[in-house]
C-alpha cells in the first residue's frame, strides 16, 4: 500500500484512475443494462400499439369510441384484453355487420398481424385476458381428450350440445356450432366469455383444463372417422327419431304395400 500511496502524485496517476473508472462503469453497464432485444421489443410493442390505434380508428371506433371507451352502439373495451380482440376479430364477428340478437361468425378480413396490432392497442387500455400462446391450447397427450370430454359435459354441453353442434337460446340468440373453430379461438372464448357466453376464468377453470376441453372439441368436431356411422347432425333423439319414423317405418310400409300389390294368383286380374 505504501508503494501505491507513494505514486499517487505520479503524472500518469490520474490517467490510470480514469481508465479504471471507465472500465468499471462500462463493465457494470454491460452486465446490468437492458438487452438490445428487450429494447427492440418495447419499440415494436409501442409501434404495434400505434398501428393498432390507426386500425382501430378506421374499423372499430364508430361503435366503441376513438379510445375504446364505448358508446351507445358498443361496449367499452377497457380491460377486455388482447384475447377478446383476437377472438372477436379473428372469427370475423367484429367489426359487426349490423345490430341484432347476436353477432354471427363470418369471414375475417384482417391479417393476423393486423389483429395483433389491434389487440396490442386494446390491451394497452387496461389489463385483461392475454392471447394464449400455442402451447397453452395445443395438447399432445391423448388422455386429454377423455378428460376434456368430462369437463365439456359439465361446463359446455348444456348450450353447445354434447358433440359441440350448438343449440338455441332465448330470443334469437344461440350457442354456435364449434365445428371448424380454431383451437386458439375456443380457448379465447372460454377465457373472455364473448357476447352472452359466460366466461370460464383461469381461477375457476385452470389453463390445463381449458387445453383438455380444446382437445376434446377438436377431436369430436373434426372429420375423424365415426364408428357409429351416420351422425344425423349429432342432435340426439330428435333427428334419430325423425329418421327412424320416416325412413325406417316408411320402408317397412313400402315393402308391405309392394308385397300386397303383387298377387300370386295364376289369373292376373
Amino acid at each position: 500500500m505504501k508503494k501505491l500511496s507513494a505514486r499517487r502524485r505520479h503524472p500518469l496517476a490520474a490517467l490510470v484512475v480514469l481508465l479504471l473508472a471507465l472500465a468499471a462503469t462500462g463493465g457494470l453497464y454491460a452486465a446490468f443494462a437492458p438487452a438490445d432485444k428487450a429494447q427492440a421489443d418495447v419499440a415494436a410493442q409501442s409501434l404495434a400499439i400505434d398501428e393498432g390505434k390507426k386500425l382501430f380508428a378506421v374499423g372499430c371506433s364508430s361503435c366503441h369510441g376513438l379510445n375504446g371507451q364505448g358508446s351507445s352502439d358498443g361496449p367499452s373495451l377497457v380491460g377486455v384484453g388482447s384475447a377478446s380482440v383476437d377472438f372477436q376479430v379473428g372469427t370475423g364477428r367484429m367489426p359487426a355487420q349490423q345490430p341484432g340478437a347476436q353477432v354471427p361468425r363470418k369471414k375475417n378480413i384482417y391479417t393476423q398481424a393486423e389483429i395483433d396490432q389491434l389487440a396490442a392497442f386494446v390491451a394497452s387500455l387496461g389489463p385483461g385476458p392475454v392471447t394464449p400462446k400455442e402451447e397453452q391450447y395445443t395438447s399432445t397427450n391423448p388422455e386429454d381428450i377423455s378428460k376434456g370430454g368430462e369437463l365439456f359435459r359439465t361446463n359446455c354441453a348444456q348450450c353447445h350440445n354434447f358433440a359441440g353442434q350448438g343449440g338455441a337460446l332465448t330470443k334469437g340468440k344461440y350457442a354456435p356450432s364449434l365445428e371448424g373453430v380454431d383451437a386458439k379461438h375456443i380457448y379465447e372464448a372460454m377465457q373472455t366469455g364473448p357476447q352472452n357466453m359466460p366466461s370460464f376464468p383461469d381461477t375457476t377453470m385452470p389453463e390445463e383444463q381449458k387445453k383438455q376441453i380444446v382437445a376434446f372439441v377438436r377431436h369430436t368436431t373434426s372429420d375423424e372417422p365415426n364408428p357409429g356411422g351416420l351422425t344425423l347432425g349429432s342432435l340426439g333423439p330428435v333427428t334419430e327419431g325423425l329418421f327412424g319414423w320416416i325412413f325406417g317405418l316408411g320402408t317397412l310400409i313400402a315393402v308391405a304395400i309392394w308385397v300386397a300389390a303383387h298377387t300370386t294368383k295364376a289369373k292376373k286380374s
Binding site: 361446463n155 366469455g193 359466460p198 366466461s199 370460464f200 381461477t203 375457476t204 385452470p206
Partner: peptide, 21 residues
C-alpha cells in the same frame, strides 16, 4: 367446492360474467 378443480373457491376467483358449478 368447484366441480372443475374440486377445490374451495375464494370470492375473487368468481368474476363477473363467469359461470361455475
Amino acid at each position: 367446492v368447484n366441480m372443475n378443480t374440486m377445490q374451495p373457491m375464494k370470492p375473487e376467483d368468481v368474476i363477473i360474467g363467469s359461470l361455475t358449478f
